[in-house]
């Protein structure tokens, strides 16, 4: 098998292991401790934040502004208007400056 295919299939197996692993391990316990529960409740915001924060800091003013505009719109409107506002901001700023 070529190197590329080996990488693809190994990556796929490990990714699937991660996607099924959390459930397989956790389902062995009868009840979930409240602290574990509180931790699990925090998972989505915690993980998704790590995909945003470094990008906000490492980008330039245009990138930072786009996230600020998106955040402001996000407090009032749903995901799609928020996403479009951010996208329009970054495209405009990058093409103007």
């Amino acid at each position: 098998m070529s190197t590329t295919l080996t990488i693809i299939f190994s990556g796929a197996v490990l990714t699937y292991a991660a996607r099924i692993g959390g459930h397989v391990v956790l389902s062995r316990f009868r009840s979930i401790h409240p602290r574990v529960e509180a931790g699990l409740d925090a998972v989505p915001a915690a993980v998704l934040t790590t995909l945003v924060a470094p990008a906000a800091i490492n980008g330039g003013p245009a990138e930072f502004a786009a996230l600020c505009v998106a955040a402001l719109v996000g407090f009032r409107y749903s995901l799609m208007p928020m996403f479009l506002a951010g996208a329009v901001t970054i495209i405009l700023l990058r093409n103007i400056f």
């Binding site: 995909l51 945003v52 990008a55 906000a56 786009a66 996230l67 998106a70 928020m82 996403f83 951010g86």
Partner: peptide, 16 residues
């Protein structure tokens, strides 16, 4: 086209 930065904007939306 801002292609490289659409993902962080989208993830920000999910966070919010």
């Amino acid at each position: 086209l801002g292609i490289d930065f659409l993902l962080p904007i989208y993830f920000l939306g999910l966070v919010m």
